[in-house]
Nucleic acid binder design. Sequence first.
DNA 1: TAAGGCCATAAACTGACTTTATGGGTAACG
DNA 2: CGTTACCCATAAAGTCAGTTTATGGCCTTA
Lengths: 307, 307
Amino acid sequence: MGNGEWVPLAHRVPDLGALELLLAVARIGSLSGAAKRMGITQPAASSRIRAMETRLGVALVDRSPRGSTLTAEGALVTDWARRVVEAAEAFDAGAQALRGRRDSRLRVAASMTIAEYLLPGWLIALRGQRPGTAVSLHAGNSAVVAERVLAHEADLGFVEGLSVPEGLDSAVIAQDRLVVAVAPGHAWARRTKGVAAAELAATPLILREWGSGTRQVLDAALAQSGGLAAPLLELASTTAVKAAALSGAGPCVLSELALGEELAARRLVEVPVTGAALGRALRAVWPVGNRPAGPARDLLSLTRARP
Amino acid sequence: MGNGEWVPLAHRVPDLGALELLLAVARIGSLSGAAKRMGITQPAASSRIRAMETRLGVALVDRSPRGSTLTAEGALVTDWARRVVEAAEAFDAGAQALRGRRDSRLRVAASMTIAEYLLPGWLIALRGQRPGTAVSLHAGNSAVVAERVLAHEADLGFVEGLSVPEGLDSAVIAQDRLVVAVAPGHAWARRTKGVAAAELAATPLILREWGSGTRQVLDAALAQSGGLAAPLLELASTTAVKAAALSGAGPCVLSELALGEELAARRLVEVPVTGAALGRALRAVWPVGNRPAGPARDLLSLTRARP
DNA sequence: TAAGGCCATAAACTGACTTTATGGGTAACG
DNA sequence: CGTTACCCATAAAGTCAGTTTATGGCCTTA
């Protein structure tokens, strides 16, 4: 893509502090109250909000002597801001765990997909329930996770895959699903009956490169339908796969977790597949006999559909 | 919720510029290259990445005399960062449109739900196709949108609702759906057969306050099943409704768009409903006869499942 | 071995954000 | 009808993070 006269996003979007302040103003209903909540003074808050309004060219809050409320545009902006702040919170939760402090009271090992999409949310929830718990995270493939759990270097592991590694007990915490998705303009988007496994197998697809968990499950599921055709594109990251599919290059296959937002917004359309099992269990694992206790049990109960 | 020793998110998460820089490093493969791309000097980039590593306590990039590549942890952090940056891009696209400049070549009016969840994505896509197009956005309820379109104050409108306002032609661009969702621990989460409309109507629910489009559709859909019971909670914002449902307070009803992420991550579970039509069309509208042309046509074709 | 990538470090600079210090406005209350 | 207690705005001075400029070391390629 061309560069043109590109300016960094950071110069066009208020910084996280300002967005967070805006959320506080929305919730609390006054600039000074929000300022106190954020640990800054009232003039600072006033100035920041005003700077944000100037930059956006829109009035965000109605000031009155007895408080400030959002304007209609302000409410919309606040909703967009909330999504940024929530993503930042997930980032923070994940990053803190990645730090891997020695004094951690809960050591977790997780596969990539789980670490990327699910764990931050769980950690935020755990922090809500047990604020004191320090968590350390180690990410790797299923084999690495199993190894660390068996060596008692992790209190709890999370794996995605078809089978449970030797020596571990497990509980299914969710049922992930590979999803075939196409851009709305693609011919398959009209197929309400979906595609048969054999047709899917015969079609060149946009895939992650070989070695990814996703790819392995797909290979196994279509083995009896003739095996995978040569890929249309073979890309290194989930993002690249999504981008290619969005541009209409062809059908892609990714975890439902990676596609949630695109599917909800109809930027991509799911194509049902008949005759192949594209599901895979997401499992929590622990050494045989060592049922999780303490913080590990807390986290586990957060992740399971049924406690 | 208690405050405790809270520190602002902005002090724990790198700023957007740093996250964007990290993405550039991931894509380009060198600090100096990423620096050039971002319009800063190489030492600045080096220093920012280093500061980020220090703050997070994790090495993110492997430096070598022939470039820099992400470490395993770096790749994970980059994926989390990408979500923050994408949210910020959506914020920016929406905010720019809200500005409402006079020289806008495309004036759009949209209902709240569409403006909040769908429009930013469309605008990003439009910017990709037609970089020069300046868009102005006006958000309001269906009546306001219709009025602006009829008065030729907007080139294109987007409404959600059961009927098309008088004097407007329309095209269905997506089928939104109200979703009943509960926390995974809730009894309804186990109901694979879902709940009947009558049972839903009789159950106290967590709802948006009266007047919201969501609420109206729900009222209409359950009118023949006995009408809505008194709400369990009646809250002012989508976010508040979600938060209440996440905490296990009870079943909530929200647009599928608002719940996409929570459902994908299984933080909330969808409960199928039988015997009531909870779907509603999302429509683009324009004055009878004035078929959209130019930029409006470009945007319209981006939003339609079938061009 | 010279050239051209890449990255690290040090020191001076800049500017955005902050606090401190005021002032003006509205509402509740005796 | 003043007093008190909120609320917000403005001005001036201070602070610190992030930046540039300048330099040096390392590795590969021709």
